[in-house]
Structure formats: structure tokens, C-alpha cells
């Protein structure tokens, strides 16, 4: 237990947490802003008497406290989510902005349980973790106002970074375990991706042309299934990279083989392909928001320096 407590007692500059905050804020803006843009707010989040398409789900404490889901309350929550998301991107208002965003976002998306996706749940989880983290300590307006600079390398508690890593690994791992269709699992024909792309519910355009690339969809099915089911290895690889100074053959092998980077690259490809071919809302964006947490401040700043020197 001492080792456990000591591991989470570490500090480092909050750069990974700041990048996470920015991407989570963008995901909130996308998840709510797109509804406003499509003119769907009254359709899906208003009561029938106010022009909505179905009876809304009751019981959200914020909405109850505000007097119920009247159009004024709903629009207030929509704007609070959008402004809160913007404040998170800019890094202003610290935890208060995150709290307001979380309360408003969860309240408004709770109103209609037919029009949500897993991304609502993932954003809600992400906002909670953001609230726990000192995420506006750097790369933020708060930092600029406090220190006069956009960045601040003062070490801050970094334990939330590991909760972020754990959360996204848990998402991938358990979604992989539940892909039990005979089209997904080894021993079958690995045709799941091909057939999912044929579903009109999610694809962006007619996908019959994919039949010419069936083999690639089979490879994609197999890779994504194994990638998800063995996602805990990604979490382990991040831990091994962060504790590289310790001994152990497995740790050394993971670091030498760049298991963490292999997982990251596959994850990015996986989400970009999903985003290009399917409309599943901001699911890819909110998933990718978790990725900076796999790297420490030193690694991220070194990568940024390398990128700038090449540019």
C-alpha cells in the first residue's frame, strides 16, 4: 500500500493535464455545438409541450434545482456547456469552469437517453478527472495571468494523469471484451468491420465499395479486436516507461520495443479511420483527448522541441 500511495504522490509540470483539458473542452464544444448547428436543441431536449419529440428523462438534480427542463433552462445549460468548454480550451477559471461545464453538460445530455452515445459518458468521466487535476496550471490564460507566461513548469500533483490512463484503457479493454460476435472473434471470418461499415445508421456515405478492400477490413477487424482486448498492455507500457530506471526484463523489453508508441499509433489510426468513414459524433476526439496522459511533461516537451526544430 505504501508503494501505491507513494506512486500517486509524485509531481511533475502539468503539461499532459493541460493538453487533456484543452481536448476535453473541444469535445464538449463539438458535442453540444453540433446540436445547436443542426437545429436539434428543441427537437431532442425540449418537452413535448415546448416542441420536443418525446417525453424527457427526469431526475437530473441540476435541472430539478433550476425548476425543470423549460426551454429557458435548457438553452441556459446549452450555453453554459459551450462557454464552459471554451473556458476549458482557453484555460480560464480553473476548476470552477470545469465544474460548471460538467454540471451543465451532464444535465442537458441526461434529458434524452435515446439521443446519446458512449461519448457522452466518456466526456462526463473526462470532466470529472479534469476537475480533479490542476489542469490550468500551464498552457492557459490562468497561467498567463498568474505568471506572465503561457507555460509554468512548477511540479504539480500528477496522480490524475494515471487515472486518465486507466480510464481510457478500461474503455478499450471492456469494449473489446464485449465484442463477442462471431464476426469479431478469432476463429470467425473477421468480417465485423466490413459489415459495420454497411450499416446506414453510422456510415457517412454508401460503403458498398469497401467490398473491393474486404481483406483490409478483415485485417482491420483482427487488429482492432486484439488491440482492444489487450489494451491493459498499453497502460502497463506507460507505467514501465515512467519507471524505466527500475530493473526488470519485461519492463526493459516493453521500453525497447516501444510498445507504448505502437499502441498510440494504432489508436490514432483507428480513430482517424472511424472519423473519416463513420459519424459517431465526437467519440474519436474525446478518446484522443486521453492520449497525452500516456506521456510525461519531459517527453511531451522534448517531442515538441523536435517537432519545432524540424519545422
Amino acid at each position: 500500500m505504501r508503494r501505491f500511495a507513494a506512486f500517486f504522490d509524485q509531481r511533475e509540470p502539468a503539461t499532459p493535464l493541460a493538453l487533456y483539458r484543452i481536448l476535453v473542452g473541444m469535445s464538449v464544444i463539438s458535442a453540444i455545438g453540433s446540436v445547436v448547428w443542426a437545429g436539434l436543441v428543441p427537437v431532442i431536449w425540449h418537452e413535448i409541450a415546448d416542441g420536443g419529440m418525446r417525453k424527457l428523462v427526469q431526475g437530473n438534480p441540476v435541472i430539478d434545482a433550476l425548476g425543470g427542463p423549460t426551454p429557458q433552462v435548457v438553452w441556459g445549460l446549452v450555453w453554459a456547456s459551450l462557454l464552459g468548454g471554451l473556458a476549458m480550451v482557453l484555460g480560464v477559471g480553473g476548476r470552477f469552469s470545469v465544474l460548471v461545464t460538467a454540471l451543465a453538460f451532464r444535465a442537458v445530455t441526461s434529458l434524452n437517453n435515446h439521443t446519446g452515445g458512449s461519448y457522452d459518458l466518456l466526456i462526463a468521466n473526462a470532466l470529472f478527472l479534469c476537475f480533479l487535476a490542476p489542469s490550468t496550471a500551464t498552457l492557459s490564460l490562468d497561467c498567463k495571468l498568474r505568471t506572465g507566461a503561457w507555460t509554468d513548469d512548477t511540479p504539480r500533483p500528477s496522480w490524475v494523469r494515471w487515472l486518465i490512463v486507466y480510464q481510457i484503457v478500461l474503455v478499450y479493454w471492456t469494449t473489446g471484451l464485449q465484442k463477442v460476435s462471431s464476426h469479431w472473434v478469432p476463429g470467425g471470418d473477421f468480417s465485423a468491420l466490413y459489415y459495420i461499415l454497411q450499416q446506414p445508421s453510422w456510415h457517412r456515405f454508401d460503403m458498398r465499395w469497401v467490398s473491393s478492400f474486404f481483406l483490409f477490413t478483415q485485417i482491420g477487424t483482427a487488429v482492432s479486436w486484439f488491440w482492444e482486448v489487450f489494451a491493459p498492455l498499453w497502460g502497463l507500457s506507460a507505467y514501465y516507461a515512467a519507471t524505466a530506471e527500475r530493473e526488470g526484463k519485461l519492463r526493459a523489453w516493453f521500453n525497447r520495443m516501444h510498445v507504448r508508441e505502437v499502441y498510440l499509433v494504432l489508436g490514432v489510426i483507428f480513430h482517424l479511420v472511424i472519423h473519416a468513414l463513420m459519424n459517431v459524433g465526437p467519440f474519436s476526439m474525446i478518446s484522443l483527448a486521453f492520449y497525452p496522459a500516456f506521456y510525461g511533461h519531459d517527453e511531451l516537451t522534448a517531442a515538441w522541441s523536435r517537432l519545432r526544430s524540424k519545422g
Binding site: 462526463a124 468521466n125 478500461l170 471492456t174 464485449q178 465484442k179 460476435s181 469479431w184 465485423a192
Partner: peptide, 17 residues
């Protein structure tokens, strides 16, 4: 806290959409 978890995503292709 908003920490509910449910990650049943594309568990099977819908062959009869």
C-alpha cells in the same frame, strides 16, 4: 461524479439494419 461506465460499442454488426 458522472463516473458511470458502459462501453458496449459495436459488439456485433447489425446484419439486418
Amino acid at each position: 461524479t458522472g463516473t458511470a461506465q458502459s462501453w458496449r460499442m459495436f459488439v456485433a454488426p447489425h446484419r439486418f439494419p
